[in-house]
Computed example of a mutant assay.
Amino acid sequence: MILITIGLVVLVIAASWYLIYRLKPYHVSTQDVSKRYSYVQPDPIDLVLSQMDSCRYSFTYKSFDGENVNGQLHFPADVKNTAEPVPVLIGMHAMGRSHERWFQDNIGGRKTVENTHKITELALEKGYAVVAIDARKHGKRKDPKQSVNNIISDMHRWGKREPYENMLVDTVKDLRVLIDCLQSRPEFDNTKIQIAGYSMGAHICLLLAAVDPRVSKVAAIAPPFAGDKTAIVSPKNIMPNLAQCVFWLFSSDNDEYASKKENELLFAALPGYDKRHFTFDSNHILPESYVDNLNMWL
């Protein structure tokens, strides 16, 4: 009898938790999207560069809300011999990583398994400048009071989606301010601004390109699936705005964060005249060879 009573109590508690705290889908309108991703350009636009060597710089700038954003900018080796402005590749890192993953093959002994540093090498060889920043709550922007792990845990355990959504939306706005900074400098070709990202970085790429027409090409590598439980950061809700982009999707058939069917649905829903889908028989970490396919995209 006691065991039955305890079982009923546990069942009631579990049902109550499910009803109260589980994430529930919600709807966003075009107006909601426009309002949420809008920003006020800082005045003045102030990209502060610190030279690391002849072609590499670290930098900081103030974002739309006064937050300090940090990152790196690498120029191709022969940039001083080029009179023309150079195209730009913006790189976005995965969750739990930092912008340095776009420039180093390991950080503190931890290998860059996403191989994003190889994309940078390829882009530099082709004459691109490569720029990457830390996303909100990542790298030098970590918040000891609100870690990424806590944000994800609280979202799934207690239904607190706002910190997660804010992390992505505000990073998109940071990138929009970065593009403002780049456009204010004559060394960059404003007609050739491309963005590539891995995992969370790919998710952010989709959102940025959807709200900012200055992005001409997108390479989304292993993006996680996002549905209406986090509707304001679900690419499908702002998909029409991607019609102006060249869009390449790289996905795995066995990704623990996006199923084969979800990736196929994402690709099918993408508008635009130039899109390609590369699939791999792997998990969330794609084989190193995926980078070779980006040769033509660049």
Results as ranks from 00 to 15, higher is better:
132 A>R: 03
132 A>Q: 00
134 D>P: 05
134 D>F: 01
135 A>T: 15
135 A>N: 15
136 R>Y: 03
138 H>T: 07
138 H>A: 08
142 K>F: 01
143 D>E: 02
146 Q>N: 13
146 Q>F: 01
147 S>H: 05
148 V>E: 12
148 V>N: 08
149 N>E: 13
153 S>A: 13
154 D>K: 15
154 D>P: 12
156 H>E: 03
161 R>E: 10
163 P>S: 11
164 Y>K: 10
167 M>V: 06
169 V>T: 12
170 D>W: 01
173 K>W: 02
176 R>D: 04
178 L>K: 02
178 L>E: 00
179 I>Q: 01
181 C>P: 06
182 L>W: 03
184 S>A: 14
185 R>Y: 10
192 K>D: 12
194 Q>M: 06
194 Q>W: 07
195 I>K: 00
198 Y>I: 15
198 Y>F: 15
198 Y>C: 14
199 S>Y: 08
201 G>T: 04
203 H>R: 01
204 I>K: 01
208 L>A: 01
209 A>N: 07
212 D>K: 00
213 P>M: 05
217 K>G: 02
218 V>K: 00
220 A>K: 07
226 A>R: 02
227 G>F: 10
227 G>Y: 01
230 T>K: 08
232 I>H: 08
232 I>C: 13
237 N>R: 15
238 I>H: 00
240 P>R: 06
242 L>F: 06
243 A>K: 09
245 C>Y: 00
248 W>P: 00
249 L>H: 07
249 L>R: 07
250 F>M: 04
251 S>H: 12
254 N>A: 06
254 N>V: 02
256 E>K: 11
258 A>K: 10
259 S>M: 05
260 K>W: 06
260 K>P: 03
